[in-house]
C-alpha cells in the first residue's frame, strides 16, 4: 500500500515531469496556474467555471471544440482525450469533497493518459488472474515507470505481483 504522503510526492513529481516533458513555456504556465487549491463550490464544474482547465491531451480547451471546427476537420480524435492536468484538477476537487479514493483513481488515470489505448488494454489483460508471471508483471511496472512516468501505477502493478504470488494467482499456478 502507498501511503498518502508518498502518493502526494509522486503526484507532484509526475506533474513536474509532464510539464517539463512538453517543455513549452505556455504549458508550464497552465500547469502552475492550476496549483492554487481548487474549491468544489466555486470551481466545479470545470467546463463552466474553469474552462481553461478543461482541456485535451493536445492542449485544446473545451470551448475550442465546436461543430464548425469539427466540420472543417480541425478536431482530431486525440483532441477529445482528457489531459493529465484536467484529471489532476478533478482529483483535487474529489479530495476537497472528501473522496480520497476517487481522487487517487484520477491520479492513476492522469498517469495513464500517456499510455496508448492498445497498450492499456494489454496491461489490463496481463493483470487478470493466471495471465502473467511475476517477472512479466514487474516488467510492466518498469515500463510504466520508465516509458510513461506512471509511478503510482507502477507501484500498483508491483503490489499486484506480490499479492498474486502470495495467493497463487500467477501464470502457471492455476
Amino acid at each position: 500500500m502507498i501511503d498518502e504522503k508518498t502518493l502526494e510526492i509522486i503526484v507532484r513529481e509526475v506533474l513536474t515531469n509532464l510539464t517539463s516533458d512538453k517543455g513549452t513555456q505556455n504549458q508550464q504556465k497552465t500547469a502552475s496556474s492550476s496549483l492554487p487549491k481548487l474549491d468544489p463550490k466555486r470551481d466545479y464544474p470545470l467546463a463552466k467555471n474553469k474552462p481553461e482547465l478543461a482541456k485535451s491531451i493536445t492542449g485544446k480547451t473545451i470551448n475550442e471544440i465546436t461543430l464548425q471546427a469539427v466540420r472543417e476537420g480541425k478536431v482530431l480524435p486525440d483532441d477529445l482525450k482528457i489531459s493529465p492536468e484536467t484529471l489532476l484538477a478533478q482529483a483535487e476537487i474529489a479530495e476537497a469533497a472528501g473522496r480520497k479514493q476517487l481522487a487517487n483513481n484520477f491520479r492513476r488515470a492522469a498517469e495513464l493518459t500517456k499510455v496508448p489505448d492498445k497498450r492499456i488494454l494489454e496491461i489490463y489483460n496481463a493483470l487478470r488472474p493466471y495471465r502473467s508471471t511475476k517477472e512479466e508483471l514487474l516488467a510492466i511496472a518498469d515500463e510504466l515507470d520508465n516509458a510513461y512516468g506512471a509511478k503510482v501505477c507502477a507501484a500498483f502493478v508491483r503490489e499486484a505481483a506480490e499479492v498474486y504470488e502470495r495467493r497463487g494467482r500467477l501464470k502457471g499456478m492455476e
Binding site: P45, A47, D79, K81, I82, S83, Q90
Partner: peptide, 9 residues
Amino acid sequence: RIAGDYLQT
C-alpha cells in the same frame, strides 16, 4: 470527456 466533470460522484 475532456472536462471530466461527469467523472465525479
